[in-house]
Structure formats: C-alpha cells, structure tokens
Nucleic acid binder design. Structure first.
Lengths: 239, 239
DNA sequence: GAGCATTTGTCCGTATGTATT
DNA sequence: CAATACATACGGACAAATGCT
C-alpha cells in the first residue's frame, strides 16, 4: 500500500461488499494488513465515515452503514416507519415531551390561529434499530385531537391519530434543507461533533377542508436516512 | 487553550465575526497564538471546513466561507444567477459541451418521447466568484429551440432561451438529495476528496400546454450553495 | 460490581511533499 | 527562486468507551 488514497479506495470496495452492521477491520488490523501507520488507517476510516459508509463507535469498533431512502412529497403517503420496515430494519418512536404552549408568531401564521393561542406541542424521538435518528417537534392546531393525553403516549403515528379523530391529513407544505442542529437536538440524537442533519419543516392540512391540523419540524440524522425531496408533476399520473 | 473542542469553538466565533473571503489565521499562526500542536490546529480548521464555515486552499491559506441560499420550488421563478447577484456575488455560466444524443430510457419517459429519439444535450458549468460551483446536464425536447447552436453559446440562461422561442417554461417536477458526485463531476467542480453535492433532477414544461421542454440534472457544491426545497401550499396565496 | 482487553478518541512531535504567491 | 501554507505520512502516549469475564 503506498498512498492514503489507495487505502481509502481498497477499504471502500471492501465495505461496499459487506452488509449493514457487519464489523469493519479495526485501525490496528488495517495497520498490520496494509502496513500503514495508525494515523493513515484512522484518516481512511474517518473518510468512509464522512461518506456515511461506516459508523464508528468508541470502544466498540467500526461497522458498515447503509442509509435508508425516505422520499418526501405531497403524493407519497408512506410513513417513515413503513419505509424503514420495508428495508428490513426496525423503527420505534417515543413521546419525550407533551404540553400546552402558546403559539409563536410564525407557527400561528402557518396554523392560521391568533398568536398566543394555546397549542399542544409534542416532542418525539424516533429510533432506527435502537439508534436515535429523528427528533420531531409537532404543534397541533386547537381541538383537532380528542383526549391527546391518552392517545399520544400510546400511538406512535400522529397521522393515524389524526385520521382516528376524523381528519384526512395530507402534507400541504414542506421545506427541507441540510444544517447543523441546535445543541439540544445535537444531544438528543447523540451526534458526533460537527455533524449536520436534515431539517424538514412541514404543515399538515385536512385534505377535504384545507384546515391546518399540524405544523412540525424534524431533525434527521443524515448518516442514517437519505431524504429525497420530490415535487409532484401535475401533468403526470401518480405511480 | 486546553482542548480541541474549545479551539474549534473559539475559532468558530472568530470566523463568524468575519466577512466572506477574509483570511483566517494559518495553521502556524494558530499553533503560536493558542499554544497547540499543528495537528490540533489542522483538525480544528478541518472541522470548520466540514461545517462549510471556511475554505482551505493548499499553498494559499484558509478563508471565510459564506454559503448562499437557493430555494427550489414550483412557484419561485428567480434563477440562480439572480439569487447570487442579490447576495453581492457574481455568477457566470459557460457551455462546456453541446451535442445530439439519443434519449436514454428514463429521460425519454420524462420528456414523453420514444426511447432513442435524438435530443440536444447541453453541459454547462456555473461559476460563483470564479469558483466552479454547479455542473448541469440538460436535455432539450425535440424542436423546442430554433438554431440551438447559435443561441446556446451566447445566452447563459436556458430559461430565457426557451422563453425567446415562444414557450412558457415552468418547473413541473424536481427531485433533490445530497450524494457524492460521479468522478467526472468531481473533477469538473474541483472538489476535495470525499465531498458530497446536491443532486437535483428537474423537468421543465410549458405552463400553458404542459408539453415537456427540458429535463436536467444539476450537481451543486454543498459548501457554496445551501439548497432549500420547498413544496408550495395550495391553500395559501403565494407571497 | 470490578477487572481486563479491545477499540476508537485526543493529543503531541517530526519530516517531507506540493501548490500558491 | 524563495517563502508561505496546506497535504500527507510516520511514530508515540494517554484517555475514554465498550464488551466480556
């Protein structure tokens, strides 16, 4: 082995031939096998980590990582949970906080209520294969859900809850980009230093009446999920 | 200075107080000023680079970097050039290749022509402040443009060209995500190793007839542009 | 719970190569 | 050509987290 670039290429090929979760040779193994210094082995693995091909855990090792695609669009209904289950992985969501807060300015505008109107705010944390992966803040318009205290600790999907309350929830608007998360979210997702997340703001309305039901912001680990934003083509039939 | 984490925080604050393009202290300066080793100074600057806060150029130095926002949606018309000009930066686009190619399968489908139909393919390279920033591949539906050889080497905006040919171009569909670019694009954009780009596929139609005019794929430097995808809310008036 | 080996994280120091100015 | 600045690579030491006994 002569250069770090080669080392990265060799390791990448090897990693790509392995399955999600499999163990990647340790830094020490790589030193011995390819006769390079530890710093070079480290930098190669770190580059693969930056490309989301591996995950590294101090004390445990380096493991192959496979990102899951999640398409966001108006027409596609499948939840994150369904998408993840299809890929043979498991997803679970927990409510970490629930309370009544008065609507801040931009949210009041989105939900079409007067500023200061009390809203139910949910904070949820979604795990993929026991890894904290998505942190959600959701504001529910007044009176869209009956007995929220009961339903929300039990039901994992707010969409189902809305449907159960007699609504027809559709994603009416979203805005997505990639950004560093605020410190609170950084901790919740146990992110490594300097990492970025998908940030998706969204508004859910009733498909029939157009009434705003919920506004949300979600931070998603970019190394676990690959979000694909799609604008529907009104001139083509939905698949 | 005790830890690398502090050093990053201190440098980040300093960088954030500076303006785009300003010179950041060199690795050597940081060693002397904060009494750390070169490797620590390096890793700190590299982390700021990973957060898109600085750009590093071998032999030249490290410079403050400020990303530009570019919103993609159906309703927003402004071109990338206009967006960049508003931020006080300059954008230029060059046609690097133009030729006739038979339509590959997915493109033929998008443009609603038979597979193998000859299409005009454009390759363009957009510079922001003399930095190669976006590489575009564009396929034009048959006969949508008169005398393409003449117009395309002169006009920087294909949208204007379409308008000049009597069409009413609107963005009918897009799909956006973040991914490593293919090697050819990696070279064109002079990217550092292991970096990712925005990848935006798009289809432009005539707003009146719905006729497909153009399909395109664009790779954009994620450290120069922050793309924001937005789905319009049909229940709210456009701003 | 304690102890231990393994593995990655964080530092240091040094030397040489390469691109820019 | 020379000076500057970043890139690459070596080596070593210790810290911190994990997983197992």
């Amino acid at each position: 082995m002569t250069s770090g670039r080669e080392l990265v290429a060799v390791l990448e090929e090897r990693v790509r031939s392995m399955r999600h979760g499999e163990r990647v040779p340790s830094e020490h193994d790589i030193m011995a096998r390819y006769e390079v210094s530890r710093s070079l082995a480290r930098s190669a693995l770190r580059e693969l980590e930056a490309r989301y091909l591996v995950r590294r855990v101090q004390g445990a090792g380096t493991f192959v990582n496979e990102r899951l695609d999640y398409v966001i669009s108006r027409s596609r209904k499948p939840s994150l949970h369904a998408t993840i289950a299809e890929a043979g992985r498991t997803a679970r969501t927990f409510v970490v906080a629930i309370g009544s807060h008065s609507a801040p300015e931009p949210l009041a505008d989105t939900l079409n209520v007067a500023p200061g109107t009390p809203l139910v705010r949910l904070e949820r944390l979604a795990y993929v294969d026991d890894e904290p992966t998505m942190f959600l803040q959701e504001w529910l318009a007044p009176d869209v859900i009956l007995h929220p205290e009961v339903g929300l600790t039990v039901i994992e999907s707010v969409e189902e809850l809305l449907r159960g309350s007699g609504h027809d929830p559709v994603r009416a608007w979203f805005r997505a980009t990639v950004d560093p998360p605020p410190p609170l979210v950084h901790d919740r997702l146990a992110l490594p230093r300097g990492s970025r997340t998908w940030v998706v703001d969204s508004c859910t309305r009733d498909g029939g009446t157009g009434r705003p039901l919920m506004a949300s912001r979600a931070w998603t680990r970019i190394d676990v999920i690959r979000i694909v934003c799609e604008l529907d083509d009104d001139f083509r039939p939905a698949p």
